[in-house]
């Protein structure tokens, strides 16, 4: 049996998403991370358009447009401007033990596929096989948040996690109801404003965006 061309394209998109997640995990420069995040959003946009086209789920075009506006244009732009205004263009951060992080990432991908297996067997969409990749993207973003120590990188991790969830929604159910997607988009937007405010507060108080400074509150 031959797999239709468009389905193969979706699988390709999914593979690109996974690759991008891994490259984000190993990227040291903050500015390049923003570019990778925008690319991830763009891939998400392309895959949603293909799914919408192939399955005639035309309401998905709206959510594709939403992705394009928010994830590809608005958020990277705002992150870019924030980084420039904070003067953090050239900042790099030390990666803790990159090979071990990559290995952990690989294990997470395997775990994600195992977890997604019963669900994707149940889903009836043409894209159900990509659910494992969506979960893997979520987990890799999580790993990125754990291993990094800069405020901007953590926020990019959080946003990338949201991308993964969006991809999961598309591949499992052809997207969530419109009201919910709009609400989620609104939350992301408000969240973006808030972390923007935060970066400046953190900088003002600690003279750097390094989260090492933010470790005084703990039980001792």
């Amino acid at each position: 049996m031959t797999v239709p061309f468009l389905s193969q394209l979706i699988d390709l998109c999914a593979a690109v998403l996974l690759l991008l997640s891994f490259s984000m995990l190993s990227q040291r420069r903050v500015l390049t991370l923003v570019v990778l995040f925008a690319l991830q959003g763009a891939t998400l946009f392309v895959s949603i358009v293909i799914v919408a086209w192939e399955t005639h789920q035309y309401q998905l075009f709206y959510s594709a447009a939403l992705t394009l506006l928010l994830k590809v244009i608005f958020l990277p732009l705002i992150l870019h401007r924030l980084i420039r205004r904070l003067g953090a263009q050239w900042e790099t951060e030390v990666l803790l033990n990159a090979p071990r992080t990559m290995l952990a990432g690989l294990l997470l991908v395997i775990f994600a596929f195992t977890l997604a297996e019963p669900i994707s067997r149940f889903a009836h969409t043409v894209t159900h096989s990509t659910l494992g990749i969506a979960l893997a993207v979520v987990m890799l973003s999580f790993l990125m948040m754990i291993t990094r120590r800069k405020a901007i990188t953590q926020v990019i991790g959080l946003l990338a996690m949201e991308n993964g969830l969006f991809f999961a929604a598309t591949s499992a159910t052809y997207g969530m109801p419109m009201v919910v997607e709009l609400g989620v988009a609104l939350d992301v937007l408000v969240g973006a404003v808030i972390f923007g405010v935060f970066f400046f507060h953190i900088r003002e108080q600690f003279d750097s965006l390094d989260l090492h400074n933010l470790e005084s509150l703990r039980e001792d």
Binding site: I119, Q154, M161, E162, L165, M176, F198, Q205, L214
Partner: peptide, 29 residues
């Protein structure tokens, strides 16, 4: 201290609530 607390709240709740979004997607499925 208050900025640290708020940042922790923002990130941890953000990650936590992302799990709930995935749960909601599964519910929808």
């Amino acid at each position: 201290a208050s900025i640290e607390a708020a940042w922790k709240y923002f990130i941890l709740s953000g990650v936590g609530i992302a799990q709930a979004l995935f749960g909601t997607i599964l519910l929808y499925l």
